[in-house]
């Protein structure tokens, strides 16, 4: 019946209105000094979910040579300097952390590992992407060479241009995660990170650090998680 006592309607209405109170919690996002903490939590929740969604053996799509953009159209995207002045002749990769054989590794040692060539999509956080041709050694093969404890949680890298990054171990062990020394069948040029960079088709582009100088296997991340991550980008950044 559609007729109802006025007082009863008012009482019911008040009760129903109160039941909406939880929505007011969203108002916390309007408080300026709480905003960073709240959205930071949102990003951590998203990163946690991203870790769950990631499948270690699920490959990113690969493309035929016809789908690859011409080398001259592959953007140079540096955060700072497109040539940090690496001395290519004396360059070594320092390996440290939870590994049996820490020390300096030459480019020749990296190149002696099985070579992978793959045409994959490099997806930028800005919203563009480009399909490129990448060649290099699997990170997992280098981890094997240096006797890394792959039950560790993270692989971190440092770069000649003071960039730095860190990866979850699952992504480091992914078969398409490369220590890349070639693009388009030629040695990396300085703008693309010579002599060695990461190429991670399962991650956003900012994870694929250039000009690598050091690789560390670790169980904890310090205050420095990644150049952009420390300013607010998602840490997992898994695609």
């Amino acid at each position: 019946m559609a007729s109802i006592e006025d007082k009863k309607l008012k009482r019911l209405s008040r009760r129903e209105l109160l039941k909406l109170a939880p929505v007011l919690a969203v108002g916390a996002f309007a408080v300026t000094r709480w905003q960073d903490g709240l959205v930071g939590r949102g990003v951590r929740l998203s990163d946690w979910a991203s870790g769950l969604l990631f499948r270690r053996h699920h490959p990113a799509k690969t493309f035929s040579d016809a789908d690859v953009v011409p080398v001259e159209k592959f953007p140079y995207n540096g955060y700072d300097d497109l040539d940090p002045g690496v001395d290519l002749d004396s360059w070594t990769l320092t390996v440290a952390g939870n590994v049996r054989h820490p020390g300096e590794y030459t480019l020749a040692q990296v190149q002696a590992l099985p070579k992978i060539r793959q045409n994959t999509r490099h997806v930028c956080v800005e919203g563009w992407d480009v399909i490129g041709s990448f060649g290099g050694a699997r990170i997992s093969d280098l981890l094997g060479l240096v006797g890394a404890d792959t039950s560790s949680r993270f692989v971190t890298v440092e770069c000649a241009d003071d960039y730095y990054e860190s990866l979850d171990m699952a992504t480091a062990l992914h078969p398409q995660s490369l220590l890349c020394y070639e693009m388009y069948g030629k040695p990396l040029d300085r703008g693309h990170g010579a002599p060695l960079r990461l190429s991670l088709p399962t991650k956003l582009g900012y994870k694929s650090a250039k000009y690598l100088t050091k690789l560390t296997v670790a169980n904890v991340l310090g205050a420095q998680r990644g150049y952009w991550e420390d300013q607010g980008y998602s840490w997992h950044a898994g695609l």
Partner: peptide, 23 residues
């Protein structure tokens, strides 16, 4: 006693999700 005509149009779940969604 005042009698009025009224209808319960929007159940709680609809109102709750409407405002959450609006934000």
């Amino acid at each position: 006693i005042q009698l009025v005509t009224a209808a319960y149009e929007h159940p709680w779940a609809i109102r709750f999700t409407h405002w959450l969604n609006a934000a």
